[in-house]
Design a protein around this nucleic acid. Sequence first.
DNA 1: AATGAATGAGTGTTCATTCAT
DNA 2: GATGAATGAACACTCATTCAT
Lengths: 203, 203, 203, 203
Amino acid sequence: MTGKNTRIQREKREVILDAALQVFSENGFRGATLDRIAKVAGLSKPNMLYYFPGKEAIYHTLLNRLLETWLEPLERLSAEGDPHTQIMDYIRAKLEFSRSYPRESRLFANEILNGAPRLLDELGGPLKTMVAEKTQILQGWMDAGKLAPVDPYHLLFAIWATTQHYADFAVQVGAVLGDRDPDPITTASHFLETLFFAGLDPR
Amino acid sequence: MTGKNTRIQREKREVILDAALQVFSENGFRGATLDRIAKVAGLSKPNMLYYFPGKEAIYHTLLNRLLETWLEPLERLSAEGDPHTQIMDYIRAKLEFSRSYPRESRLFANEILNGAPRLLDELGGPLKTMVAEKTQILQGWMDAGKLAPVDPYHLLFAIWATTQHYADFAVQVGAVLGDRDPDPITTASHFLETLFFAGLDPR
Amino acid sequence: MTGKNTRIQREKREVILDAALQVFSENGFRGATLDRIAKVAGLSKPNMLYYFPGKEAIYHTLLNRLLETWLEPLERLSAEGDPHTQIMDYIRAKLEFSRSYPRESRLFANEILNGAPRLLDELGGPLKTMVAEKTQILQGWMDAGKLAPVDPYHLLFAIWATTQHYADFAVQVGAVLGDRDPDPITTASHFLETLFFAGLDPR
Amino acid sequence: MTGKNTRIQREKREVILDAALQVFSENGFRGATLDRIAKVAGLSKPNMLYYFPGKEAIYHTLLNRLLETWLEPLERLSAEGDPHTQIMDYIRAKLEFSRSYPRESRLFANEILNGAPRLLDELGGPLKTMVAEKTQILQGWMDAGKLAPVDPYHLLFAIWATTQHYADFAVQVGAVLGDRDPDPITTASHFLETLFFAGLDPR
DNA sequence: AATGAATGAGTGTTCATTCAT
DNA sequence: GATGAATGAACACTCATTCAT
């Protein structure tokens, strides 16, 4: 049925996935309705279900793609080059992701927050593997005296938390800042460089 | 109707709110059903609605309580005392909150993530006001040379993000760490002290 | 249980019936709720059900009383005296009933309108019997040349319709008249005398 | 959504409205249930709600149609022609309405009886306006000596009351008459001509 | 005599999914 | 490919009635 990957099929699937991303990220899985997704996508509901077998299928397709995108910046963290640059590149990439793909970030956060019922295997599999690999690199830098000796896992958690915050808690950030900062993510970039590489103690 | 505050009323209301906290924090507002809350609370659905007028009322009661609890540690941040101690006390209080009240943290995160439709006023009101006040204290410390000069708002964001992460993304933290760390929040406490007050540059 | 007719019992039953009359007449049988009746009566719902076994029982008690009151003015229509006076006395009594007991009138109308499921026997029994009797009187007057020869049954229908209208359709009467007539029922009394005994043809 | 007026849509909507008319007129708004309407219409409840957004919408559609039909005979009352004919035409049209559309009449009566919560605006608006206009015509005839001088508003009330009675109180009429009159409305037509244009005084 | 508490059976409405064309 | 139509299962909430005290 959906095996024929004609160009028009692929395009329609993209339109649907984009609409679904918006609706799922704003309402969570159960809060989202196929009606709304179909309306946003500009299709009839049965027509949409011609391209995807059901609500779960749409959601899973989004999640799977998302994990790849989510992992990709971390993938680039390499033992080559100096730690400061490498880590700041990662932080900036994550901030850029929060700026450009806030809906994806919130979709991911929603899923994790609700216990990751449809992502647990991926978290314990591909993600765990890659994290194990990259923490090795961080550990190597620490062992070589190029980086302060800290728990590399929690270092990654701190990077994820501080960067994703600007997408996931955007409403709160906006409410608290008011008009104070027209470009909070750029400010965050500078702030995080100071935080991560100098700390708050005055020199 | 439910105005009389008899002992049994207060107790039942607590039982309901506890069940609701669990169900709402796991599923978000729309994903939660009164059926499930009632079952968790061990009551019939109509009996539950004898104590609260409806789903919204239960949720609002939870949210209102929550915001107070959420703000309370920040409230204690005081200009008196030295910055390092004050800030670390705040970080530890937030971590303790994530350890003891992860469901409350996730309820809050869920609400913000979905656009805070039932909390926007509070965010722009009481929260904004208190944050404005507390960033003044931080700014004062920076002006006095007791703290590295950074954006105080983003400093608060970083504290919130890194501490709440252990409640909100607990599933991911657990999946990534596996058995490696039996007490991640304690590890986080040490890690965050290094991060916030020394940074990652080797000395 | 409810056999003991103490004074206080009788009074409470009256309070309940009065509240029920109001609520039933405004909302019909199904539209009325025991909650509202109890609130209007100033009793708790279970306490109210101590005096009456249930919703149906309250309603039936009202209906039975009502039929008596409804029939009473007709009862007084007597072969003695002249037709004009007798009939106008009946019309005025019915108008007075609409003025003083509009809720009773509407309760009755509601019941008939909805097919009289709880009053059919009474309609085909006591009411039919009395009407048969009274139409005999009317017929007697007509046979004696004291009254224009018309169908006596439809004459009664016309009296009922025109007089009850001021209670049952009070909202419409009020909306149509606006401020034009501060006392429509008195106006109606004069109008109906002309209508019934002179007609509309100019003399 | 339901905007497309396909043939099948129009037909189904009529089926639903017909079923709804029956159920609403027998039970009033609150007494009617969508379950029963759907059963009478021969549809499933959700399917019915595919054609109408909800219970209120069905009811309002009925009411709006009804008011037009209700006003139409009055509309035709014209200053041209002689009063007797004009008024009797109106009375006969109203009786015909009671004969052919008793459910509509009862729906209307039910609404008024319960305070016209969904029709008050119409009563004080279009209805009041048309009545004001038509009473002018009646008044004109009286001023010209072509009609006995009576209150024209109450004259209309009397016409409405006596004609609608045969639909709204049909159960009572039937119970009282028994087998006596196989065609009460025709009898009523003659009776009302005598009543309205001759009165009960013997000549 | 009175009331707080509890519940089974509805009641209007939503929603993912399926059917027919 | 596409859509109008249809439905079973939920879902939030109501209500008459009963229970326990």
